[in-house]
């Protein structure tokens, strides 16, 4: 088996990138490990949510507060953004024009911001209906889990802007390439977490 064949997906850029491909090994592995730790963080918050599901203390519950249409749009936006980031990753890997790479990244950012806009709108309409975090254990748990994901997306958005800045400033050097690869992983990871949120929080809450 050749050296290249045993490299795991998500850890490499392909042999065409030479030294950058070698550098990716350690850095990407480190980021996978970080994501593992972050996944535990989310798991704990999910556990809090599930155990607090019935702790509404007489306040509004899932059926009173969730708006599945809006959440569905958010889901589509986020899934689409994962796809566009995938296109950005391909543009990086196959050395397409820099403009194309930046283009896909900007589209991803726009989709992410739209997602956050819808999410904030959801929160504010929940607030209007009396669904504030200090109302009950259930709402506390909700506002731990869903905004934690939102904060991650926000951080990812800021990171994305910085990376575009680095591409403009330095071009595609090793550090920028590795940054884009890590953000890609992070972005897809958040997508997976969102699917869990959509299923556990929204779908299960409304059935």
């Amino acid at each position: 088996m050749s050296e290249q064949a045993i490299k795991h997906p998500g850890l490499n850029l392909g042999p065409a990138h030479g030294k950058d491909d070698e550098a990716a090994g350690t850095v990407m592995f480190g980021f996978w490990v970080f994501l593992m730790s972050d996944a535990i963080l989310f798991a704990m918050v999910f556990a809090t949510y599930v155990t607090s599901l019935h702790a509404t203390a007489g306040g509004p519950g899932p059926r009173d507060l969730y708006d599945i249409k809006s959440v569905f749009i958010e889901t589509m936006l986020l899934l689409a953004s994962s796809f566009t980031f995938g296109m950005a990753s391909l543009a990086l890997k196959y050395k397409h024009r820099k403009a194309r790479l930046i283009g896909w990244m900007v589209v991803t950012l726009v989709l992410g911001v739209a997602f956050l806009g819808f999410e904030l709108h959801d929160f504010s309409s929940m607030f209007v209906k009396g669904g504030v975090p200090s109302r009950s254990g259930f709402l506390s748990a909700f506002f731990d889990l869903v905004p934690l994901h939102g904060l991650h997306v926000t951080a990812g958005g800021i990171w994305l802007i910085c990376l575009v800045g680095q591409i403009v400033r330095y071009g595609l050097d090793t550090k920028t390439k590795l940054g884009i690869m890590r953000l890609a992983l992070f972005w897809h990871f958040l997508d997976i977490v969102w699917i869990a949120i959509f299923s556990v929080v929204y779908l299960a809450g409304l059935t």
Binding site: A57, R135, G137, S140, F143
Partner: peptide, 9 residues
């Protein structure tokens, strides 16, 4: 918030 309080769930 009310994660670990006595009242409100």
């Amino acid at each position: 918030f009310h994660y670990f309080t006595n009242a409100l769930g």
